[in-house]
């Protein structure tokens, strides 16, 4: 008796959300099968890979390959151009590391100028990530949303504490996309989506950032949350969990011990950069397998590998 696999597709689907405009747009989400199960039904839009740069550019310190890639690019806009040109890159993520009041505390006006330059410089969609300071990000995003109007930018992220202003100023006032960030809990994720839609933000403007962790650092919670979100969206047709999921992988993985401990401290561990690349790649792959529709990475080697992985699965 021959065996035939039963394809498992659902009547419900993930919302499709375009980022960027015109020929440069990339659509994330869509599809009605479990993550990467394209043998059940061909992919509507393959998961997207974003390349993260920061306003400060300090991330390349101590990483010769990464520094070499960006060599000669002295401004965020120049780095953004190189990031956009990276093999496998679908979009660029500009992270305002320097805006953190606990750090450089770059002024909103300066950040806005950078955002404007960057969005003009690249031919790929832009994602703007904040400083992780709740108050500063509100100001920063509102101002950036204005200068990037008509560019269909995604802002990462609004949290329960500041979703109102970010939702109103970015999504409602300027029609941008907003990331809804919760910390690895399906119910909190859903609650935030409900609150955002009650504010008037359309589900078509929301991308979920479910929270993440580097491999080995409690990733089981990340995997289970993503898997449950996808199952609820597809199997239970939960419309408040059908927004696509984006995960800023790089900012998690490049700050764990494995990716920052210099080789001189840990000779047996070998090259620091290689460790960081693999930590980033392994985590990104696990995110995609669990249900991410877009990942944000930093290193050209990781970007290439993850893009190759996605292409091989289509």
């Amino acid at each position: 008796m021959p065996f035939t696999a039963k394809p498992r597709k659902f009547s419900a689907g993930i919302i499709e959300i375009p980022l960027g405009v015109g020929q440069n747009a990339v659509t994330i989400g869509g599809g009605n099968v479990l993550p990467l199960y394209y043998f059940d039904n061909p992919a509507k839009n393959p998961p997207a890979v974003g390349v993260e740069i920061t306003d400060t550019g300090v991330e390349a310190a101590g990483l010769p390959e990464l520094a070499a890639y960006y060599e000669g690019a002295n401004t965020p806009a120049e780095r953004a151009k190189k990031a956009a040109a990276m093999e496998g890159a679908d979009f660029v993520c500009l992270r305002f590391e320097g805006a953190d009041p606990g750090g450089l505390n770059r002024s909103v006006a300066d950040c806005v100028a950078i955002a404007k330059e960057v969005v003009e410089a690249i031919n790929k969609p832009l994602v703007i990530a904040g400083s992780k300071n709740l108050e500063k990000d509100v100001e920063l995003f509102s101002a950036c949303a204005e200068v990037c109007s008509d560019k269909n930018v995604l802002f990462l992220s609004a949290r329960e504490e500041n979703y109102k202003t970010i939702g109103a100023s970015c999504a409602l006032a300027y029609g941008q996309k907003v990331g809804a960030e919760s910390s690895v809990d399906i119910n909190l994720a859903k609650q935030l989506n409900v609150l955002m839609t009650q504010l008037g933000v359309q589900p078509q403007s929301i991308v979920m950032n479910l929270g993440s962790a580097a491999a080995g650092y409690g990733f089981e919670y990340v995997a289970s949350t993503m898997e449950r979100v996808k199952l609820a969206a597809l199997e239970q047709n939960d419309t408040m969990l059908q927004m696509p999921v984006i995960t800023p992988v790089a900012s998690e993985t490049w700050s764990v011990k494995e990716s920052i401990m210099p080789e001189s401290d840990m000779p047996e561990w070998g090259s620091l950069e290689e460790r960081g690349i693999e930590m980033e790649t392994v985590t990104a792959s696990a995110c995609l397998a669990s249900g991410c529709d877009a990942v944000i990475l930093r290193h050209p080697t990781s970007v290439k590998a993850i893009a190759a992985l996605i292409a091989a699965l289509l």
Binding site: E146, K164, T165, A168, L172, A173, G200
Partner: peptide, 12 residues
């Protein structure tokens, strides 16, 4: 309108 609208929508 935008300046006043955002805090009105958020109820700030």
């Amino acid at each position: 309108v935008r300046e006043l609208g955002v805090p009105l929508v958020t109820r700030d």
